[in-house]
Design a binder for these strands. Structure first.
Lengths: 114, 114
DNA sequence: ACGATACGTGACCAATGAGTCACATGTCAA
DNA sequence: TTGACATGTGACTCATTGGTCACGTATCGT
């Protein structure tokens, strides 16, 4: 077999996280959880409500946000579980001690004055 | 300002990781590092050499793979540093102890037999 | 030198995805 | 009940991107 994509969900989560706006949405929900669509729209004046809604839909499909209806409003909550799963099943694979040292070194190099 | 994308590199890395084939390429380099383009092509029979090359280009632009020329061949090496940086600067933010417990719970639920 | 090998480039096409708009449904409050 | 508010849907446009192909350059062995 050429290669196996064990978890389709993983791809969806990665794709959902690949967009800058969507990560910003998650950030907004991180600072204040349980926001409504309109509240989130105010954080993105350069975009229409429909654009924000579409992003929310993608995030919801990736299970990165969960929603509850509250009358005529819909509250959006951040769900960090898929992110944690990503870190567990995929990223930690490349997080060897060797890598740790490399990251620290690169960080030092990037922040050297002179 | 509506929102700030502190690190442009982050977006590039996320986008690079969003493609299934590219993650498979990284996997292939993880199992055997320092492969040539043709060797990698054999792992993806459903795709042309040019397709693989394009993916390698994206991964290289994201600094996820580094290359060294060896005569007329080009060797590709996996560079886990950007992945580790992602985990450090972004994912660990959502990796609270609370989340840990949730992930374990969800894992148990997913693997319950009857 | 010469063919074979290995990689590179630009143009090109098809599919996906971001974003918008017209419209439609449901809900609160007076 | 009527109007204002909050969210939903489908179709549409435009940019991006995954993928291919025809060609071109560099390198190795003989």
């Amino acid at each position: 077999m050429p290669f196996v994509e064990a978890d389709v969900t993983q791809g969806i989560v990665f794709k959902a996280l690949a967009d800058d706006t969507r990560r910003a949405v998650l950030d907004a929900l991180f600072t204040r959880d349980g926001q409504t669509v309109r509240a989130l729209c105010e954080r993105f004046p350069e975009m229409t409500r429909f654009g924000v809604m579409k992003h929310l839909g993608v995030l919801e499909a990736a299970n990165l946000v969960t929603t509850t209806r509250e009358g005529r409003t819909k509250l959006h909550f951040l769900n960090p579980v898929p992110i944690q799963q990503l870190a567990d099943r995929w990223i930690s694979k490349y997080a060897q001690p060797f890598t740790r040292a490399m990251v620290d070194l690169q960080f030092d190099l990037e922040h050297q004055t002179a």
